[in-house]
C-alpha cells in the first residue's frame, strides 16, 4: 500500500519535472513546478519528515512559486518576439550538450550509489517503533544545538530581502 503511494508521488514529481523541462510556455512550467513541489511534499511525509512536508508547502509553493509567477508576469510582453522583446514562449538550445552532461552525471551517481551499499532495511536490523511527529525535536534542536546557524540564517534572509528591495528600485 505505502509502496503504491510512494510510486504515485514519485511519478507525479518526475512527470511534472519533465513538463518543466520540455514545455515551451513559461507559465505552464511554473504551474507544473507546483505539482512537482506537491509530490515532493507527499514524499517528505512518507519518509517521516512531516514538519518538512508542511514547510515545503509553505515555503516553496506559498513563497517561492508565487515569487516565480510574479517574475513571469513582470518579464513578459505579449507576442513581441519579432521586435527582439521577451515572449512567454521560449525554446531549448544545446540539447545534445545538456543530455550528455546529464547522462554523465547520472552515470557518476550510478557508479557511486552502486558502490555504496546502503543498509538494506530489514526486519532483523531495526525494531519497530511508533511513528511520532518530528516538529518538537526539530524545534528543540533549532533552539539548542543549532541556535547560531538559526540566527545567522535570519540575518541572511534580512540581508537578502533588503538587497532584493534595493536592486528592484527604479531610481538609484
Amino acid at each position: 500500500m505505502i509502496q503504491l503511494v510512494f510510486i504515485a508521488f514519485a511519478l507525479l514529481s518526475v512527470v511534472s519535472a519533465l513538463v518543466v523541462l520540455l514545455t515551451n510556455n513559461v507559465l505552464y512550467a511554473a504551474f507544473s513546478l507546483l505539482v512537482t513541489f506537491l509530490g515532493m511534499a507527499g514524499l517528505y511525509v512518507i519518509v517521516g519528515a512531516d514538519f518538512l512536508g508542511v514547510a515545503q508547502i509553505l515555503v516553496y509553493i506559498g513563497g517561492i512559486l508565487v515569487l516565480l509567477i510574479f517574475g513571469v508576469m513582470l518579464t513578459n510582453q505579449k507576442g513581441t518576439k519579432s521586435q527582439g522583446r521577451n515572449d512567454i514562449l521560449t525554446e531549448n538550445t544545446n540539447r545534445v550538450i545538456g543530455l550528455v552532461v546529464a547522462a554523465g552525471m547520472f552515470g557518476l551517481l550510478y557508479f557511486v550509489f552502486s558502490k555504496g551499499h546502503f543498509a538494506e532495511v530489514q526486519a532483523s536490523l531495526f525494531t519497530d517503533t511508533p511513528l511520532k511527529a518530528t516538529t518538537q525535536t526539530i524545534g528543540l534542536q533549532l533552539m539548542t544545538d543549532f541556535v547560531l546557524p538559526f540566527e545567522v540564517s535570519g540575518v541572511l534572509l534580512m540581508a537578502a530581502l533588503l538587497g532584493a528591495a534595493y536592486l528592484s528600485t527604479k531610481q538609484k
Binding site: 505505502i2 519518509v47 517521516g48 532495511v121 531495526f126 519497530d128 517503533t129 511508533p130 511513528l131
Partner: peptide, 8 residues
C-alpha cells in the same frame, strides 16, 4: 536501531 514500520 529503532525505526517506524511505515518508513521501513
Amino acid at each position: 536501531q529503532q525505526l517506524p514500520d511505515v518508513i521501513r
